[in-house]
Nucleic acid binder design. Structure first.
Lengths: 221, 221
DNA sequence: CCATAATATGGTCACTGTCAACTTAACGCG
DNA sequence: CGCGTTAAGTTGACAGTGACCATATTATGG
């Protein structure tokens, strides 16, 4: 044990694992796909084809770490977007715009984040052997929760200030409201990736209009 | 040329291509993953390891066909869900519930549908060679549009009857409303897959509450 | 200074995706 | 009828891959 588990301190390379994650992230970004070989990641990092196995038991684990890094970056961008706005409504709009923009800028990374990284191992398929690998997507899951927390904070602030029609003391209402926002932004991002990859202006206006629909509702008032 | 291009008429097998799609779909469902080998799909179909190449140029194309089949099944389930309901609001709820249920029942298939199947080939990466493979995800895209159309019809009906606060003649407003619904349902499905895989009751209640939030809006009225 | 565990390397194996060439079967046609 | 043509499927082959093993090397604790 090194004692400080959070600070990975490889001995020989300097900081492999970070280098591997960076190389894999670069490959995902360049090829817009994660079908590259683990050996190529090792090649980019300048190590032998087996060095990555000292840090990641399987290829999926490396991809999971890349997804976790993507979630962390997404969280940072969301926090930066809401840093200089006051009202919860403006924060929600800015946060959604930053979120969608991040997804559109790197669709493959976004798909990786919500793809196999979060997929839990099928429980019913394995007949008897219950491998303790259930903790594999834990890293990506935790990072995703970190990003989700940004949205939840905005919802909570809005509820406290009375600008959202939910009770700030009802955990259930808060959770539903946060989930509906998270759903809308997440779904919008995936659809934006598919439909309007390129025109950045259209993304902003579309985000604004859809978030307005979400805030004001679909039924006549 | 056989003359009828839409009707695949294999000579030797009866209907390979359909058999391959079925085998691949079964594998996706069983293993909750599409990392299986193309050779295993061929094995399941009882053909040699190279027979699939007569129907799909690459493995991705077979996965795209599986995704398209998944979209068709999703569309059918949505249509069946709204067949016996009257009001647009009830149709929206039933449609969303069916959608989410389908996603939760087969998460891997759902992820495949919105994963690499819809991913367009990166345009800026390929330096010069512009391969004419841009039509690869076309099949899945078209099938996805078919499922999306169900939601759009509900929105249009609601606008016509005046139960939704949008103009039935404004193409733009209709598109935004449909997109916001599609986004919410799609995002909710992905989040439901991650959080509550199993409890089916919770899915229904959560869908109802979130769709109500969407219909009535988040801000006080 | 050594013992130990962590870290990287080279070697190996079954397997994969894809290409090329060959065989089989159905059709069209003089 | 034989003939070529073409689609559909088969066999063989090759480079490359993921994952494992044993081995070598280096940093860290004592």
């Amino acid at each position: 044990m090194t004692g400080a588990e959070s600070i990975e301190r490889p001995y020989h390379h300097g900081d492999l694992r970070r280098a591997l994650i960076d190389a894999a992230l670069a490959l995902v970004t360049e090829e817009q796909d994660w079908s590259f070989s683990l050996r190529e990641v090792a090649r980019r990092a300048g190590v032998s084809h087996n060095a990555p196995y000292n840090h990641f038991p399987e290829k999926r684990d490396l991809l999971g770490a890349v997804a976790a890094a993507g979630f962390d970056a997404l969280r940072d961008r969301m926090r930066a977007a809401i840093a200089r706005v006051g009202s919860p409504r403006a924060a929600l709009l800015a946060c959604a715009a930053a979120y969608v923009k991040a997804g559109v800028e790197n669709p493959a990374l976004y798909r990786l984040m919500f793809g196999p990284a979060l997929a839990a191992p099928a429980p019913a398929v394995r007949p008897s052997a219950a491998k303790p690998d259930s903790g594999r997507p834990a890293e990506a899951r935790a990072a995703g929760a970190g990003a989700k927390a940004v949205l939840e904070e905005i919802i909570l602030r809005g509820a406290e200030r009375g600008v959202f029609a939910i009770s700030a003391t009802s955990k259930s209402e808060l959770a539903v409201a946060a989930l509906s926002n998270w759903s809308a932004v997440h779904g919008l991002t995936m659809l934006a990736i598919d439909s309007l990859t390129g025109s950045e202006l259209a993304v902003d206006t579309l985000v604004n209009r859809i978030m307005r629909t979400l805030l004001e509702g679909l039924e006549p008032r």
